[in-house]
């Protein structure tokens, strides 16, 4: 029950030893009781946090099919996403889409915490939030990508984007082999958080 003990240094004495499940439930109970959140909204939000395709997946597919839409996505990501039917609250941090279809391979990291575009990508994978990736992606991107099985040609420059401030980033990958014969639904399944962060390439079947 260290959550309520504040030590002289200002650090909680024992919060990390608490049963996080009970603590999360207790905090939820209190904010519901305080009228800040209502129980149904909270439970619906909890239930929605299951693995699923990134919300931006169909938008990426449309960008592959439609060059004019692709240009709009690259110049105004939120505008293009709204045009494609995504619902984006005005409070979400703006996102920028980086073009991985050209000469440069982009890789996204947040070295100071784990910034990511929640409304476009969904919940990020655990590795994105882990010390190893946050430490190494900026200094040895090729070695990190190789661990993901992605070997970028030595002749192709890599650009790392450190999401340090108010903007969030996802990449527009090159479409997979055979994309022109695939359905939109099949193409959308090739878009994963890994693909959107630049550590993996979309692959059909």
């Amino acid at each position: 029950m260290g959550a309520t003990r504040v030590g002289p240094s200002g650090h909680e004495a024992g919060i990390l030893q608490d049963d996080p499940s009970a603590l999360a439930d207790a905090v939820a109970d209190l904010v519901v009781a305080a009228g800040i959140l209502d129980r149904n909204t909270l439970e619906a939000a909890v239930a929605a946090r299951v693995p699923g395709p990134p919300p931006v997946a169909p938008v990426i597919v449309r960008a592959w099919r439609d060059p004019e839409f692709r240009a709009r996505l690259l110049s105004d990501a939120f505008g293009a996403c709204v045009e494609a039917g995504l619902v984006l609250a005005p409070t979400w941090p703006r996102a920028v889409v980086l073009d991985n279809t050209g000469d440069i391979h982009h890789l996204i990291v947040c070295t100071l915490c784990s910034c990511h575009s929640r409304p476009l990508m969904g919940v990020p994978p655990a590795w994105y939030k882990a010390h190893e990736y946050r430490s190494r992606a900026v200094r040895e991107p090729r070695a990190v990508l190789a661990e993901f099985g992605l070997h970028i040609d030595q002749a192709r420059p890599i650009r790392v984007q450190d999401a340090s401030a108010d903007l969030r980033y996802v990449v527009l990958p090159a479409p997979p082999e055979g994309w022109d014969r695939a359905t939109d639904a099949a193409l959308a399944t090739t878009i994963t958080p890994e693909v959107l962060l630049g550590v993996s390439l979309p692959r059909l079947g």
Partner: peptide, 22 residues
Amino acid sequence: RQVDLWHGYDGHPDDTLDIDVY
């Protein structure tokens, strides 16, 4: 330029890093 950030960086000489700074 990555070679300006890291001593002994051995990737492509045109490898870069972008970061948003106030």
